[in-house]
Amino acid sequence: MGSDAAVKAMTDDVIVLSGVGKKYGKSTILKDITFNIPKGSVYGLVGRNGAGKTTLMRLMTGLQKCDEGSISLNVAGDRIGAVGAIVELASIYTNLSARDNLVFQYMNLGQKVDESLDELLTFVGLADTGKKHAGKFSLGMRQRLGIAMALVGNPELLVLDEPVNGLDPQGILEVRNLLLRLSREKGITIVISSHILSELSKLATHYAFIEEGRVVKTATAHEIENAGKKFTTITCDDPGKILPVLSGLGFSPRIIAQDKVEFEGEEKLTTLVTTALDAGVEISKVDTQETDLERFFVGLVGGDPNV
């Protein structure tokens, strides 16, 4: 990971990525990735499988080196432990207790074990696990231990790759609450990737959308919410018949299911129902939604949000 004094002096961004590229053999995994991650943000990386999210996180955490471009980390003194991360799986010794794992992490960072260890255990809800080996923890507990390990050095940046992957609803809730507390109470910048976009949307303040190794769009959560697009879904007995009716009203409808038609925009319910009745179509339900993360993502990279 490179450092750039000029960038540090001028920016409030924790990470500045500039023209980052990475290849595995002849395959280009990332190309010309350029964006900044503001301090204190929860930055969501969104992309399909194989888009390059995990590779990007590995580059950010120093696990791998860029083939092109640079990544500038803007933390105090480039100190050991300034970045905490879980990449793929929580990196823990399964034959040791939560406490012993943390002791090793303190040693890894060259820090003395003090009362902060117990505070961390309490913070992630593992204070009462005693001598139980981490190998016997649930997946959620392991993830929380992994996060505790990542927090040992009081990091300014936390990088989490799919932190809720494989967790049950309770586990997802625990990790989400933990991350929200980290962001709000400790002001830690968090970079997070997840396939569960609805979950990500509950955490992230900023997004980078990655497709085929390139960043196709960066946006704040506020910008996505205010994208201004509304979508109307009509459930009816004969979608084929209602298409010309909606086209006549100036929309571009499309059939999304056997009994469903969707179009961008909204129309008065009475207008829709009466026009449809005139065309001999019986409407059973009309639903209007604002643009969400999933729709925004699909709008960028293509595909069907309703599949």
Binding site: T61, G62, A82, S91, I92, Y93, F104, N108, L109, G153
Partner: peptide, 12 residues
């Protein structure tokens, strides 16, 4: 165990 990653992420 992945602890090797922890060492690298820590900045060693």
């Amino acid at each position: 165990s992945g602890f090797l990653r922890n060492k690298m992420i820590a900045g060693h």
